[in-house]
């Protein structure tokens, strides 16, 4: 099938999930990290609701994002008429001191998210994670329940088949909804190109380096690359064997770093 038809099928599944979440779960919010995945997802949310975004977008802000990220947020919040909530995360000094340094820095977002959930009583949080990113995320359900403390019981997940999702959860718990779980990194770039979705320019190579995955400036690093256009990124990804999150130091500090983060509520 053509690239267009292929991407439209992925998109249809995503839009179906977004609308399902909106119908079944209130109040609902969406994580917008300003990265390529959640921005592509936001684009599909706008498609699902005919140009509008009927819920809050949430940025978990550690004040350590790269300046280009904040610029992008401000520009499109205005241009797309978005309701963006900037949630300031608690400082690193309040995190578990036994965690390795980068994992500790990443844990700030988990805590920020917990504060937000507690205060605003969200029942559903839409997030732009994908199965192919990381083996922990490959285990995810599309509608994934989280307990009161935000933790994920990956050993006892609900049955999920035939596009029927778990929508009812106890008081105080919430659901993470993952509408692009079935997409790959390459799919996202092809879709971004087809739909002409804007991206933070840091993804494009300058002086032999580019960001493949965007995170806070203290724990994310650019990788070697000469891909300075989306076409070149797509070409690069078809041959590379370097994992997407190679520039994310918290994933690689200890064998179970990311697992520990995820189980305690990290996106």
């Amino acid at each position: 099938m053509s690239e267009k038809h292929y991407l439209q099928q992925l998109e249809a599944q995503t839009i179906y999930i977004i609308r399902e979440a909106y119908n079944r779960i209130q109040p609902l919010g969406m994580m917008w990290s300003i990265g390529k995945d959640s921005t592509a997802l936001l684009w599909m949310v706008r498609k699902a609701f005919f140009g509008k975004v009927p819920f809050k977008l949430i940025l978990l802000d550690t004040e350590m994002e790269l300046p280009e990220v904040y610029e992008f947020r401000d520009k499109y919040t205005k241009e797309w008429d978005l309701d963006v909530h900037n949630e300031l995360c608690p400082p690193e000094s309040e995190m578990d001191p036994t965690l390795p340094p980068a994992t500790r820095a990443a844990a700030r977002k988990t805590e920020g998210l917990k504060n937000l959930l507690k205060r605003d009583q969200y029942k559903g949080i839409i997030g732009g994670i994908r199965r192919d990113e990381q083996s922990m995320r490959a285990k995810e359900r599309v509608f994934s329940p989280r307990s009161i403390d935000g933790s994920w019981d990956f050993k006892d997940q609900p049955a999920e088949f035939w596009d029927q999702y778990k929508c009812e959860i106890p008081q105080g718990c919430h659901l993470r909804i993952h509408p692009i779980l079935h997409w790959t990194e390459l799919d996202i770039w092809r879709y971004t190109r087809m739909e002409n979705i804007p991206i933070v320019p840091l993804y494009l190579a300058r002086n032999g380096k580019r960001y493949r995955s965007l995170g806070e400036k203290n724990i994310t690093f650019p990788v070697d690359s000469n891909a300075s256009t989306i076409d070149e990124i797509i070409e690069e990804l078809q041959t590379t064997k370097t994992p997407e999150r190679a520039g994310r130091s918290m994933d690689n500090e200890r064998e179970d770093s990311f697992e520990t983060l995820r189980a305690s509520g990290y996106m």
Binding site: P158, A159, E160, F161, W162, Q164, K166, E168, P170
Partner: peptide, 12 residues
């Protein structure tokens, strides 16, 4: 179809 008991999908 699926069957739901309480809040859980328990059959199909």
């Amino acid at each position: 179809f699926v069957l739901v008991e309480g809040a859980d999908i328990v059959g199909g």
